[in-house]
């Protein structure tokens, strides 16, 4: 009879063997020339530069940063409204959150770009397309973040608010200086998620019908793919998305472990 440890070791070898067999099968079965022609044509890769960086990546970052900043502020305001002792504030905030959390982001984009002009023909959303993107991404992201921020605020121990109030701070001052900073520490991981989701949602800006200088990564990739009849441009912009999101995850993980040490 094998000892439990021997049995565990044997089982681990079986797992490695399965993995190796699967990898070998993929490597042998795949037609690598065909795959490279379809997905990684070096000539096409070179053609993507520098525009994929100077226009597309730049625009994706700008759209996301504007949308996230507005969304974060909106989310904080909505969260504080949800926690307000004034009934109408709570109802309004709940309504806004349910509305924009429930609608697909694409619908919000259409509503703001087309619907706004139809409803208020004499007014315009400021800053053109950037304004629309900021509003649309901010509304969608803010609705999600509001609930996250509210949960974070409620997770801060009650004694923190009491200690701040006992020192003479007003409720608002205590929120700003004591409760909200601790809440943000608690919700850093879900907020990162939201930022990454918004990075990808920024691709919906294509609905606005932009000129080349306004292309973000997805639109840029689709145009490239259509003109070349090849998937290479899509692979390039896919890598660009990872270029944004992976370092972001690393930075946030650093921040988390630093906050952990200070706790």
């Amino acid at each position: 009879m094998a000892s439990p440890r021997q049995r565990a070791a044997r089982w681990r070898y079986v797992q490695y063997a399965v993995l190796v067999v699967i990898l070998l099968a993929i490597i042998l079965v795949a037609d690598w020339d065909q795959i490279q022609r379809a997905f990684w044509d070096w000539e096409l890769v070179k053609e993507q530069f520098p525009d994929v960086i100077t226009i597309a990546l730049k625009n994706t970052i700008i759209y996301t940063a504007c949308g996230f900043t507005f969304g974060l502020l909106l989310g904080l305001v909505l969260a504080l409204m949800r926690l307000s002792s004034v009934g109408p504030y709570r109802w309004i905030a709940t309504g806004i959150i349910e509305l924009f959390r429930g609608l697909p982001a694409l619908v919000v984009f259409i509503a703001l770009s087309v619907g706004f002009n139809l409803a208020f023909p004499r007014y315009e959303i400021p800053f053109g397309n950037l304004g629309v993107v900021t509003l649309a991404l901010g509304l969608v992201g803010g609705a999600y973040m509001a609930e996250t921020i509210r949960a974070g605020i409620q997770a801060v121990p009650k004694g923190q608010m009491e200690a701040a109030r006992s020192l003479g701070m007003s409720h608002g001052r205590a929120m700003i200086s004591v409760v909200v900073p601790q809440a943000f520490r608690i919700i850093l991981p879900p907020l990162t998620n939201e930022l990454i989701l918004l990075t990808k949602d920024s691709s919906l800006v294509y609905i606005l019908g932009l000129s080349l200088s306004g292309y973000e990564l997805t639109k840029f990739g689709r145009e490239g793919m259509n003109s070349a009849s090849n998937l290479t441009p899509i692979i390039v912009i896919g890598l660009c998305y990872l270029l944004i999101t992976v370092p972001l995850s690393i930075v946030v993980r650093r921040m988390e472990s630093r906050a952990e040490r200070a706790r």
Partner: peptide, 20 residues
């Protein structure tokens, strides 16, 4: 109340220091 509280120091069982 805020102004009066500023003149009354309070110490809690659980300290309630601001951890951040």
């Amino acid at each position: 109340v805020d102004k009066l509280r500023a003149r009354i120091g309070m110490v809690f069982q659980q300290f309630n220091l601001f951890p951040h």
